[in-house]
């Protein structure tokens, strides 16, 4: 494991902690897309099926359990917590799951490195992760008043993806025979999805203004 990978994972972890803290402290999930959280839950479940079959390291196992547990906690709060669920922007969070899930599923059936249930589901999770942030970005654009923590959450998620690209470059240069084309291409697509957001996030930070995305 190299520094970029570790920093990437820690940034990912931090993004989730920021979201948990925001929702818990303010008792509000305003501006948070339940659709994106549920897509992440699908991503983590499909990818981490190997928790039961393939032990890589204690670090990997612990992180997988944390990602699963924290995502399901957020979903539980947004759906069932008696105070928090009332603050969910149900009417604005209208992105349709099937527009993302079906193409990713079809693509994973065609483009995979091995046609087995585990491998196809793993590949599906890679493709779905690349686009899972889209409902959140759409909701953000619709919500005029973006609070800082929601903005920081998305910024940290985007940073995690950028650090993973550096991790792949490092691994490519240091590990013989290391290559994973499907992951690389999906990861680059995923990072590109954030570029527009990054632009407005950095601009609002430099100008000391509240973040808002143009419609």
């Amino acid at each position: 494991m190299n520094l970029f990978r570790l920093l990437g994972d820690m940034t990912h972890l931090l993004s989730i902690i920021v979201l948990l803290l925001k929702i818990n402290a303010t008792r509000s999930c305003r501006g948070v897309s339940l659709k994106t959280q549920e897509l992440y839950a699908i991503v983590f479940v499909c990818r981490y099926l190997d928790l039961f079959t393939n032990f890589i390291s204690l670090y990997n196992t612990v992180m997988k359990v944390i990602f699963l547990g924290s995502t399901f906690t957020i979903i539980y709060w947004m759906r069932f917590h008696k105070v928090i669920r009332v603050t969910y922007d149900r009417d604005q969070d209208t992105f349709r799951y099937q527009f993302l899930i079906i193409p990713c599923l079809l693509l994973s059936l065609i483009l995979n490195s091995e046609f087995t249930v585990m491998e196809v589901l793993w590949t599906f999770s890679i493709y779905l992760e690349a686009v899972a942030i889209l409902p959140q970005l759409v909701l953000l654009q619709r919500t005029n008043n973006i609070d800082n923590l929601t903005g920081n959450y998305i910024f940290l998620l985007g940073s995690y993806r950028a650090l993973y690209i550096l991790n792949w470059i490092y691994r490519f240069l240091t590990e013989p025979n290391y290559r994973q084309y499907l992951v690389w291409i999906s990861g680059i697509v995923q990072t590109i999805v954030y570029i527009d957001f990054f632009y407005y996030y950095i601009r609002s930070w430099k100008n000391n203004e509240k973040l808002s995305l143009p419609a």
Partner: peptide, 10 residues
């Protein structure tokens, strides 16, 4: 695995 895909990342 086939194609050199690694599963050691998160």
């Amino acid at each position: 695995t086939a194609g050199g895909e690694h599963h050691d990342e998160l």
